[in-house]
Nucleic acid binder design. Structure first.
Lengths: 209, 209
DNA sequence: ACCTGAACACCGTTCAAGT
DNA sequence: ACCTGAACACCGTTCAAGT
């Protein structure tokens, strides 16, 4: 018996599943057709081509994000909380991050967060160009951090590897440092450290210059 | 007349040219063979397969990097100078950055810079785990920033676009901020601002807590 | 040791033809 | 309006056969 008529929505849902399971490079028009039980060419009628199919997927998931609620007593704390939620959301959609990055749509995705940041930066007393700089500095830092993180997690075995390079190099000079650098990065902690350091400088410029 | 015998080195040089000109995705075994004037299959004898060819290319260019000389009077200034050179080097090899990122070899590439940073952080009086954190925070920030930058430069036309979203939203509340956020990012300035803010907090933790 | 063409199993996309 | 198979122009890779 023939299958029910194909819909654009059905294509998107199944495609999203495929991407979530095996990554965007596994999303083949032919595999997708097989999964859908249709001819390859039917897909083209509904979504145009592979490129615009991926566009639609990104669009859809970007829309699902947003809705950031800052928490904390001080503006600085609330900015940090926005940064953390942002990072969490990005980490929960690893393939999406890659796709958004690939397609240069990062900016779009971060508009809700940007607006939340503007409010907090305002509350901290910043205005005008300085406020804009602060917002963007945080935004760039979070996105950048997540990109680097993803990169490290995907990284193959490193040869020579940080361990070998550091435990011998300056073990006698600063053993604790060598030990720290030879251990894998505690990414949660490093993220907090970095964001807090940045936010502190940005929001309290007068207090330590 | 027959061409001179193919060498592994010749393959790598021509492949590097192709990547530099049109990006890694344009590096096709068949195109490469055409450029070299040999059969596609000859390449396989010399470099194994496409994957290890790309490995070799990355390896080669990563080796060319390094050689970082910190400049400036204070440790903070020297750390900032390392960050700037790092960014410059990465921006000069845009395709390389993408390839290194893709292959998870970022860590490897940054070892020389990491060692320079350790020296400066030491000079600033930091030791042990705190020093390691500072080094990695800077490293993550620079790499992250360059990744975000590349992403933005590749970005297609943004719809809705930051302009429309900001000039109406809070024009009366903070016109200068709205104007700043609706203008394209001055990436050089934002980079300096971010790095300086981060470094200041990291190297002078006592001065503003 | 080095090079070759034929062949295999994949791609994305187009298009004329069906209903 | 929606679906189809055949066909086109690409991929990376293997392999038996040449010298």
């Amino acid at each position: 018996m023939a299958r029910a008529p194909l819909t654009r929505d059905e294509v998107l849902v199944v495609a999203a599943d495929l991407v979530k399971r095996d990554g965007p490079e596994a999303l083949t028009m032919r595999k997708l057709a097989a999964e859908l039980g249709t001819a390859v060419t039917s897909i083209y009628w509904h979504v145009g081509n592979r490129e615009s199919l991926l566009d639609a997927l990104v669009e859809r998931t970007v829309a699902d994000l947003g809705g950031i609620r800052p928490r904390g007593a001080t503006p600085a704390e609330r900015v940090v909380s926005v940064a953390r939620t942002l990072r969490r959301q990005l980490r929960d959609h690893p393939h999406l991050v890659a796709m958004v990055h690939e397609r240069g749509l990062t900016e779009r995705m971060f508009l809700p967060a940007q607006q939340a940041l503007v409010r907090e930066v305002h509350a901290a007393g910043l205005r005008g160009a300085g406020a804009a700089d602060a917002v963007r500095a945080v935004q760039f830092q979070v996105v950048g951090y997540v990109l680097v993180e993803r990169n490290r997690e995907r990284a193959p075995v490193q040869r020579p590897g940080e361990e070998e390079l550091w435990d011998t190099a300056l073990a006698e000079d600063d053993a604790a440092l060598a030990r720290s650098l030879s251990r894998p990065v505690d990414q949660d902690r490093l993220f907090l450290t970095s964001v807090r350091a940045l936010v502190k400088s940005l929001l309290e410029p007068g207090s330590c210059s």
